[in-house]
Nucleic acid binder design. Structure first.
Lengths: 104, 104
DNA sequence: TTGACATGCAACCATTTGGTTGCGTATTGT
DNA sequence: ACAATACGCAACCAAATGGTTGCATGTCAA
């Protein structure tokens, strides 16, 4: 879980996931297009995403195809974010009350 | 948004949020209890969470009270995670198909 | 009033991170 | 056959990160 959070922490990596979401199965070269970064840097980012199980790859000849795996993202939503949604209003009103009364 | 992702990337910070979720409005000293870390380190983590708008603080005498703000967490769920949930099955089956057939 | 308590602030440190350059290797199209 | 293509690997680098120690400051209680 920590690996997934760390992988998602970087904007370049999130945009790589976005691009795979837009078109799945892209090669390394395709994923490099338009990026202000060397191919080797992109490789490192993809390796981190792969280690976090967010992308899966298969070699096809001399090309490497990258596939998005949205399951860990979904898990973060279910196992982590969900528990904070419950008390959204509760927490807000509690803070407001505290802010308004100095005599707590 | 990037600030929130970065803030959530650290396990210590996530556990601070968990502790505030369990009991809101804790002081710095209370949040330090049981942590294998100096008070100053905890202060830095809380500052990062505050900069990401994940906690709000109010000074009360010589103590500083910390309140959880779950809104940015909720926003990540809505604006980022949600769009990846849609094609969960689609992506999986697509990958499976690729893995099974070498002749793509 | 004064000592203990809760916190703030700054300098410093090691490690991690995100990126580079350079070179090697396998595959492919002509 | 061979040059171009697509990628892998390793060394290196600057900056960010996560932590520390030391000291200063404001507040409360006896």
């Amino acid at each position: 879980m920590d690996e997934v959070f760390k992988a998602l922490a970087d904007g370049s990596r999130r945009s790589l996931l976005d691009r795979l979401h837009a078109r799945n199965g892209q090669t390394l070269g395709e994923l490099c297009d338009g990026l202000a970064m060397t191919r080797q840097a992109v490789t490192k980012h993809l390796a981190i995403l792969e280690a976090a199980n967010l992308v899966a790859t298969i070699k096809h000849g001399r090309e490497k195809l990258h596939y998005l795996n949205p399951v860990p993202i979904h898990q973060i939503g279910e196992r982590w974010i969900k528990k904070f949604e419950h008390d959204k209003l509760k927490a807000l009103s509690e803070l407001k009350r505290r802010l308004e009364s100095r005599d707590a």
